[in-house]
Design a protein around this nucleic acid. Structure first.
Length: 216
DNA sequence: CTCCCGATAT
DNA sequence: ATATCAGGAG
C-alpha cells in the first residue's frame, strides 16, 4: 500500500499526463447521460457514442422510450451488447422517471440507485458530471489502475476501492481525479498492453517493475 | 457467484 | 481464438 505522499505523487504525475481528462460520453443533458452510462457497461465509450448519435435523435424524452416496443428498442441498441438487459432497464427507468420524478433525473445518488440499471458507479458518474457533486466512480479502469499502483489492495471490492480513494484524495479533487484515473487506465496503464517503459510511476509501481522484468 | 453479449484489438 | 470494454441484477 502506498503512503499518502506516494498517492499524492501518483496523482500529480497522472495530472501532468492527462490535465484535461473529462467525460467522453456524448450527452446534452442529465437524461442523455444516464442513458449513455447505462449503455456503457462492458462496452467502449466509442461504441456507445456511435449508437447514441442515432439513438438520441429518435428518443428525446422518457416517453419516447416507452412509445416503442421492447423489441424495437433492443434493435436500436443491439450493437452495444447486453442489449436485452439494457433495453429492459431503460424502459423501467423511464417509467420510474415519469411516475416518481416528474420526468426528470433525480439529482441525488440515493435516488438514482433506485432506478433500474443504475448502480453505484453510474450514480457517481451522473451525480458528478451532470450535477457537479464530488464523486469517484470506480469503473474497470479506476479499479485496475488503483490496484496496480498499490493505492489499494488487489483483493479490495469496488466499494473498498472507492472508499480508499475518497479517503486519500481531497474532496474537491474527486471528480477530476476520477476522470484522470480513467484516462490513465484507458490510454497508458491499459489492461492488455500497459505502457510501463514510458511510465513516470515505474519507480513506485511494483506491478510495473514485475512486468518489466518479465518483459510483458 | 453467474449471467447478460456485440464489437474491437491483440 | 481470446481478452477486454466507463456494470448491474438475480
Amino acid at each position: 500500500m502506498l503512503t499518502k505522499a506516494q498517492v499524492r505523487h501518483c496523482l500529480d504525475e497522472i495530472t501532468k499526463m492527462f490535465p484535461d481528462a473529462q467525460c467522453e460520453l456524448t450527452h446534452r443533458n442529465p437524461f442523455e447521460l444516464v442513458i449513455a452510462v447505462l449503455l456503457s457497461a462492458q462496452c467502449t465509450d466509442v461504441l456507445v457514442n456511435k449508437v447514441t448519435k442515432n439513438l438520441f435523435k429518435k428518443y428525446k424524452k422518457p416517453e419516447d422510450y416507452l412509445a416503442v416496443s421492447l423489441e424495437e428498442l433492443q434493435e436500436d441498441i443491439r450493437s452495444i451488447g447486453l442489449y436485452r438487459n439494457k433495453a429492459k432497464n431503460i424502459q423501467k427507468l423511464c417509467q420510474s422517471l415519469i411516475d416518481e420524478y416528474g420526468g426528470e433525473v433525480p439529482n441525488t445518488k440515493s435516488e438514482m440507485v433506485k432506478l433500474a440499471g443504475v448502480g453505484q458507479k453510474t450514480a457517481n458518474v451522473v451525480a458528478s458530471v451532470a450535477f457537479g457533486e464530488p464523486a469517484i466512480a470506480v469503473d474497470t479502469h479506476v479499479e485496475r489502475v488503483s490496484k496496480r499502483l498499490g493505492i489499494c489492495r488487489w483483493k479490495d471490492s469496488v466499494t473498498q476501492v472507492e472508499e480508499t480513494l475518497m479517503k486519500k484524495v481531497p474532496r474537491e479533487e474527486w471528480t477530476a481525479t476520477h476522470h484522470r484515473l480513467i484516462f490513465f487506465g484507458r490510454y497508458h496503464c491499459r489492461a492488455r498492453n500497459p505502457n510501463c517503459p514510458d511510465c513516470p510511476l515505474l519507480d513506485i509501481c511494483r506491478e510495473g517493475q514485475k512486468r518489466m522484468r518479465k518483459r510483458l
